[in-house]
Amino acid sequence: MATDTLVDPARTAEAAPPAWRRLLGSWDAILILALLVVVLVASATIEGVGSPRFYRFLVLEAIPIALIALPMTLVIITGEIDLSVASTVGLTCSVLGQLWYLGVTSLPVLIVLSLLLGAMLGAVNGVFITVFGLPSLAVTIGTLALYRGLAYVVLGDRAIADYPQAWTQNAVAPIPGTVIPWFVLVLAALAVVFGVLLYATPIGRSLYAIGNNADASTFAGVSVLRTKFWLFVATGAMAALAGVFWTFRFASARADNATGLELAVVAAVLLGGVSIFGGRGGLVGVLAAVALLGVLRNSLQLADVPANALTIVTGTLLILSVVGPNVVRMTRDRLRRRRPLTTALERTSS
């Protein structure tokens, strides 16, 4: 084959932009930069921000959000959503407390039963969504109410709080020599697992394909429904793990544990650059967003900003993160289009 018509020198001459340039322009980089700026500014201006105690509470608060954000990222990349996670946390806490109350005293047994319960709750979501083909938004709004209701059925208004001190202390114990809770290592390990899954396995490849075009994915041999089902199971299990941590961290199992947490998780995932329509985004940005939102919240709290204002700040950030990239793209297109060689006047005269 003659190459003259096939290879265009103007095109081959242009190499891919270097990796660091691509990284710098990315949303991930912007988030990390924003995180650093916020930390520096807040540490300099707000009393108490940047202290060891500050970081310790920051991490403790971020752990459950991050644990659930990991699978949530994958779910949203496939174009679905799970709003029932906070209620799953609540129901797991309640069952865990009740089991302890009824005399199950083995910690491993309690943990395993909790995770199984979470996986089961996720599977229920999965069945409605994949077998009956219902939209995940509707299904998980339903189970958001249902699971929370069940939590009240299990515990009522009681709080189970009499766990062995060793359990509750160990849950929040720092890594020796630091102030950082050791549980962050569990989170880190799981983040690596999810990261590898998303970026370096055939399953990760199919998640992006599903989120962009489920039809074409089916034609390429991706089991779309089966993949989604297992994602919901994983989300349930991770929410349950967050529930276990929650129970021991606060030494309290109550039916209303973690109410509203789903919004914190979804906010972090979207701010992290994952498209609500699926197909785009990644874990780096999401973890950065969890940290950024956490630092903002804790700093403003220390600055005595009322809780309402905090919500306003989070909401504004969220809207900016969703609207921002679109506005940038639209203005770019506008500008490009605005270059035709004739004026509007000539146009109307013709």
Partner: peptide
């Protein structure tokens, strides 16, 4: 466009999707 390709993904990802395993 609907069945053969995932338009938003790269040439590379599309060309290797059925053989990802």
């Amino acid at each position: 466009r609907q069945q053969g390709l995932v338009m938003e993904l790269s040439i590379e990802r599309n060309a290797t999707l059925p053989r990802r395993w």
